[in-house]
Design a protein around this nucleic acid. Structure first.
Length: 317
DNA sequence: CCCCAGGCTTTTC
DNA sequence: GAAAAGCATGGG
């Protein structure tokens, strides 16, 4: 059993919270709310390495890890990249945004510490495939079951406590999964289970090269159509994979909540229509007229959580 | 009992 | 082509 021994400090220019969990729906990623700083640890698996995080002040957190390197990259650099500490979240919005939308800007204040992460592409793809027409509770449950059933068990000890974590299953592991067993992890949805197996097989066999899709030169529309060739992936999920799993902060996923705030906050009449593919593309184009096109998705994610919590009063983190 | 929940696919008009 | 109906389940 490994012990978590290393400790690194990271300073962030933020006040309220560093929210990660919602981007992946699962307890395997961690959630750190600054309101709990000093009291709460969150354990997680990052690229199959167990990691612990603790808030120590309004602007700092600590990372505990068993390794000094993740995927050959020094831990400090990896964490900085993973949590997009290179990004000033206030600057993901256009310069004139605060004066154009002062009420929204005011509501957004507590959300500039929320970060879109550069997560693993395969993990992101499979996780979001579990997220269609279903509630957050069940989405998290599905991913947790996938991880516990097919992931590798990683036990670590920390301050005398044993922590059991599971890495996200490899493409090969899911590619070889029994459909019946897998569907018990996917809300008994056999179609979803089948889609996950097929997607995992494509990745495992190299027919879908997620690494190559990480090339920032690929136009967003092309990236989206490639991802949509997988069953179970439409525009929304494709954009989520691009945004959270491929570092494409220009990708702007539109779901029911985004559609809602586009209508209410930005007075979009298009948002009143049902979310058909045509409506989706129209809203996507509209959003880029008042958001920075290169960072529309990053900004959209802050707006998304702000809308859910401040307006809809949904507490998912 | 009905409706919705961070949609996608198939069928029907 | 664009709309409407299934998918599965838990919770309000």
């Amino acid at each position: 059993m490994n012990s978590l021994i290393l400790k690194y400090h990271y300073k962030i220019n933020s006040k309220i919270c560093l929210n990660i969990r919602d981007t992946l729906f699962s307890g395997q990623t961690f959630l750190w709310n600054i309101h709990n700083y000093g009291k709460t640890f969150y354990s997680s698996i990052i690229q199959s390495y167990p990691v612990l995080i603790k808030g120590i002040s309004e602007h700092e957190f600590e990372i505990y890890s068993t390794t000094k390197c993740i995927d050959g990259v020094p831990l400090e650099d990896f964490i900085s990249h993973y949590f997009t500490l290179d990004i000033d979240t206030k600057k993901v919005f256009p310069k004139d945004f605060p004066e154009r939308y002062p009420e929204i800007w005011q509501l957004l204040m507590p959300y500039f510490s929320l970060r879109v992460m550069r997560q693993d592409s395969f993990e992101t793809m499979i996780s979001f495939m579990c997220a269609q027409g279903i509630g957050m509770h069940l989405i998290r449950k599905q991913v947790a079951m996938l991880v516990q059933t097919y992931g590798e068990k990683r036990c670590v000890s920390f301050l005398g406590n044993e922590i059991v974590l599971h890495s996200f299953p490899s493409p090969e592991r899911l590619a070889a999964a029994d459909p019946a067993l897998l569907s018990s992890c996917t809300n008994n949805n056999r179609i979803r289970a089948r889609n996950i197996i097929l997607a995992a097989q494509r990745v495992a066999e190299g027919r879908v090269d997620l690494e190559a899709l990480g090339d920032p030169q690929i136009p967003l529309s092309e990236l989206r159509s490639i991802l949509c060739q997988n069953g179970g992936i439409g525009y929304k999920i494709a954009d989520c994979v691009a945004l959270f799993g491929l570092g494409r902060f220009d990708a702007f996923p539109i779901d029911t909540h985004v559609k809602q705030y586009l209508g209410k906050w930005f007075n979009s009449s298009t948002a009143l229509r049902s979310l058909s593919p045509a409506t989706y593309l129209a809203l996507d184009a509209e959003a880029r007229t008042f958001l920075n096109p290169d960072l529309a998705g990053y900004a959209g994610h802050l707006l998304f959580h702000c809308w859910r919590r401040e307006v809809k009063r949904l507490r998912t983190f």
